[in-house]
Amino acid sequence: MAETAVQEKEPLLAFGKNEQKLLSDPLNDNNPITVQVLGICSALAVTSLVVPSVVMSIAVVFVCAFSSLFTSLLRNYIPKQVRMIVQLVIIASLVTVVELTLQFLNYPIYKQLSVYIGLIITNCIVMGRLEAFAMANKPWRSFLDGVGNGLGYGAILIMVALIRELFGKGSLFAGSGIEMKIIGASTDYFINTQTNTWFAWYANNNLMVLPAAAMFIIGIFIWIQRSYNTKLVDIS
């Protein structure tokens, strides 16, 4: 074990270039949604409104980060034959922790999100990072990788939700304290907000409310990202 002792000289919570890359890579070059095309199911399902998307993103960052941390701590003890089941136990426990905490702290939000929170267990990004990274890396780096991928997922989620809510409902942040009507004169969502909208002629696009719209938007994101980040284009 002499060699490992030499390597461990670096501080436990080092934050150098490599660690920064762990956080920044998933935001662009290795984005879980637009590059790895994982976690699409929930990205289509929850993004019709901004507020649920934000809470979902926070929950995924939490679950992704801590499941990576715990998996990495246990990585040398987890029997290879049952490693995926063990990972699933860790993920499911953390999701339960999120659910119980929400029930305790803010019951209305829990009621609004309970279905999605449960869906985190089936989010491929979480398990994908455990298999691809946490099983082979040290705890601190795995934790950062989890945070980075959670953020990369959340960034796309919130961007898609902003577009869908704006064009599908003409509003932003509906359901929170700062909800606002931005475009369109349609009164079917907010009462008495006919005034002070900008493009009063705009009629809400119902396609944007449907999950199919998220598919198109994510497709366009992938197109844009690849047109300026040419190293992502698969030439083979």
């Binding site: 987890i78 029997p79 049952v82 136990v89 426990s93 339960t96 922790v97 119980l100 305790f104």
Partner: peptide
């Protein structure tokens, strides 16, 4: 390993549930 992990997780989650139950 599996039994120990399950037991630890079960104890932790049950205690968390018990601690938050009344308020929930």
């Amino acid at each position: 390993f599996v039994l120990a992990l399950t037991a630890i997780v079960a104890v932790l989650l049950t205690s968390l549930r018990e601690a938050t139950k009344v308020q929930a």
